[in-house]
């Protein structure tokens, strides 16, 4: 289990575990580049355009995972027995990384759409709900920056995160509930096989390792920011007390 405890300002965000994770994710990305660009075959219909799949699908899945982790961490903060600001910081860090992956999903999907569909964007159910999910979590991050105490920030953002998590199944099942331009599931229906499927799994593993590495570091940076805020507050209180003692 990686060390998720808050850090002191003097302590760096890296640990032995995070360094191993960082190296593993780097190796995974190199593997993804090798398999995605050189070893996996062209698709019979889409030719080389299919290679965007190895970025697009893993980034979408990781964005889902990140937002679900944000939801679970937020629930853990709201639950009295597990309430800790560490959960809030994990939620915030995971949402930030999720927004990053969702952005990659939208950009790669748009480029892929131009190659295969002939257009960059259209308002179908999958594309629209994905863009809406992206915008929702940008809003969540904005709410986190509204100020107040750490506890106020944690409480209001946790409630929003729980509501926003409901959008994840909406996006995922949009291709089943409505009639979209976007294709249906491929992996679950066995429509992707051999080296193409293996390359996709390499992408998912590489992106998962990268996600964990980014969240570990980011939540520790958030802990440092909170510690810095607390330290500033303590300094101010000490100065006021000193002034009071002089009167």
């Amino acid at each position: 289990m990686p060390d998720l405890s808050p850090v002191s300002i003097a302590r760096p965000t890296g640990t032995r575990v995070s360094r191993v994770l960082g190296i593993a994710s780097l190796v995974g990305i190199v593997w993804l580049v090798v398999f995605g660009l050189f070893l996996s075959p062209n698709d019979a219909t889409q030719k080389a355009g299919v290679r965007i799949l190895y970025i697009h699908v893993p980034s979408a899945w990781l964005a889902y995972l990140a937002f679900i982790v944000t939801g679970i961490s937020s629930a853990a903060y709201l639950f009295k027995r597990t309430r800790s600001l560490t959960w809030d910081r994990i939620a915030g860090a995971s949402a930030e990384v999720g927004v990053l992956f969702m952005g990659v999903t939208l950009v790669s999907g748009s480029l892929w759409g131009r190659i295969s569909w002939g257009i960059y964007w259209t308002w179908d159910s999958r594309l629209t709900t994905t863009a809406f999910l992206f915008v929702t979590y940008i809003g969540y991050l904005a709410v986190r920056g509204l100020g107040g105490t750490h506890q106020q920030r944690a409480r209001r953002s946790a409630i929003i995160a729980l509501l926003a998590t409901l959008e994840v199944p909406l996006v995922h099942f949009s291709v089943k509930w409505w009639r979209p331009l976007h294709q249906q599931e491929s992996v679950a229906e066995g429509k992707l096989n051999g080296l193409m499927l293996f390359t996709l799994f390499v992408g998912i593993i590489a992106f998962t390792l990268l996600y964990v590495w980014l969240v570990l570091h980011r939540q520790r940076v958030l802990a440092m920011e909170d510690a810095l805020d607390d330290q500033g507050l303590d300094t101010a209180l000490a100065e006021r007390r000193a002034e009071g003692a002089q009167i």
Binding site: P41, Q46, K47, W117, Q184, S186, M196
Partner: peptide, 8 residues
């Protein structure tokens, strides 16, 4: 494009 992929 449908959801099936086949190696060239």
């Amino acid at each position: 494009h449908d959801n099936s992929y086949d190696a060239e």
